[in-house]
Design a protein around this nucleic acid. Sequence first.
DNA 1: TCTGAAATAGACCTCGG
DNA 2: CCGAGGTCTATTTCAGA
Lengths: 158, 158
Amino acid sequence: MSKTKLDSIDRKLLDLLQVDAERQVADLAADVGLSATQCWRRVQRLKEAGVITRQVALVDRAKVNVAVTVFVAVRTNTHTEQWFNRFRATVEAIPEVVEFYRMSGDVDYLLRVVVPDIAAYDQVYKRLIAGTQLFDVSSSFAMEELKFTTALPLSYLP
Amino acid sequence: MSKTKLDSIDRKLLDLLQVDAERQVADLAADVGLSATQCWRRVQRLKEAGVITRQVALVDRAKVNVAVTVFVAVRTNTHTEQWFNRFRATVEAIPEVVEFYRMSGDVDYLLRVVVPDIAAYDQVYKRLIAGTQLFDVSSSFAMEELKFTTALPLSYLP
DNA sequence: TCTGAAATAGACCTCGG
DNA sequence: CCGAGGTCTATTTCAGA
């Protein structure tokens, strides 16, 4: 893996592609002031370097009936590797869990879960605690999603 | 907007496209057992119905130097609409904030922020509290991202 | 060596059956 | 509803700087 140096044109391309990956090469080229060929090569390099990992379709949460977001803060008192592996496997097998972090501080793990309603959340909750022994689980419901973007800020480029 | 009924083939298509939107129609068609034309029509309909909202490029967090994730829990004691509008505008203008929810319970708002390091987070923090009067701000750092997916679970389809 | 224009290949999308 | 062909786009090649 080479030292990926990204200049301002790469940055512009990423900015555009993070918002809409369907744009045509010629179109992008015009926006960044490059020939189509050159632009195509840039995008190719960004993919090969692993800067762009992949391209995905985003789906409307309400339209697939998972409008409810729940954050689940988990604390444990069993800090063994065995416990962790089991917990991790449990969580990864639950498709309703879309994010899963190991945290510093008070809470040990934080999960973001998407479900249709509270009843469905209860099912997920049961699956979670069935897998492993948890010390404390605290669920917070999101009332409204005010911002959600997959576009990362590009002001800190290497 | 028509009542979007999604059958098991739509579900399969969404499942595939949520993971990789670059797959070719003929390829998808083979996987779901449809003719290319029919498959193309399905995907088209999913887009027109707004089930698929758009297609984006996902970028490697480490490669663009925002490897650190911070969750910011915000509490306020100024529950006016004017305050909210100001806060919302402040938050939306900060590209480091990638998620922003209004919560029930103890915490009023939850933000997910991505930055290169703690110093950079401090800058974001300052921008946050500069915009509006906040009662309490509590930051938790993620040590490790164990799971992150943009793919929603499709077991609750309408 | 690098650029960009033009050829090629291949996928999308439309249309007739 | 299906497949075949026309059209458009990505990709490669190649001549020139």
